[in-house]
Simulated scan of single mutants.
Amino acid sequence: MKRIFLFAIFCIPLVGFAQNEVKPEGDKLLWFVAVFVAIPLLYIILSRVFAKPNKLKGKPVSVKKNQLKIELLKDRKFKPNVLTLKITNNSKKDIDLEAPILTFRKIWTKRKFKLKGINRYVIYPLFLEAGKTHELRIDLSVFYNHDRKLKRYFWSKVRVFDTNGKKYSSSYITLRKSLFS
């Protein structure tokens, strides 16, 4: 009896794990590929059928020149004390500007500050005439005294909105050396 029991225990894994081979199902794979090819083709065909008739084909695309040129300049290469914001109106129209937003950025964190004016004088919203330049000097020691952790941030950027809601942005400048800058 013991021998039959041991034989049954040793044979169970062989019986339990034995499988019949199944042939690859190529038809399902072909249907899967066909659906993924058909969806974009159907979208392209429908977009051309329902396209606006007044669109001219071959019409050159005009690139609109930026109305505002936003520059953020620093007084030193690394660890600057003063940033200078230059806003130049290149358009033929006058523009109303909201208060700019100064952004300090680390790798995953950002801190944003709204710049309201100079020496406790509120100068924003600002009316900038066509062809004129506005310059604002930003002393960073005020921000560093407010929050000491800002000295550890690597980059800074300024965003300006006009009263119509259009967003203009400067490029990032490097405040201090990092592995990424």
Rank of each mutant, 00 (worst) to 15 (best):
N66S: 13
I39L: 10
A51T: 08
K52D: 03
P60M: 10
P60Y: 00
F36I: 10
A51P: 00
F78S: 14
P53N: 04
V33T: 09
Y43W: 11
V37T: 08
E71Q: 15
G58F: 06
L42M: 04
K59N: 03
K64V: 14
V61H: 05
F78K: 10
A34Y: 13
V61Q: 07
P40A: 06
F36H: 15
K65R: 04
L42D: 05
K65P: 01
F32G: 13
P53W: 08
K74Y: 05
L56E: 02
L46C: 13
K59G: 00
F36D: 14
G58V: 01
L41A: 08
F78Q: 12
L41P: 04
P40I: 02
Y43D: 07
P40V: 07
A38K: 07
V63E: 08
K59C: 00
K74L: 07
V61M: 07
P40Q: 11
L41M: 07
S62F: 05
L30I: 15
V33M: 14
K55I: 12
I39W: 11
V37R: 05
A51W: 10
D75G: 03
V49T: 13
A51I: 06
V35E: 03
G58T: 01
S47W: 05
A51N: 08
K77H: 14
W31S: 11
N66L: 10
V61E: 08
P60L: 05
P53Q: 04
I45K: 06
I70S: 01
N66T: 12
F78L: 08
A34I: 12
I70F: 05
S47A: 07
A34N: 13
K74P: 03
N66D: 11
K55W: 11
L68I: 02
R48N: 06
I39P: 10
Y43F: 15
E71W: 00
E71G: 00
I45H: 10
L68S: 05
Q67P: 08
E71T: 00
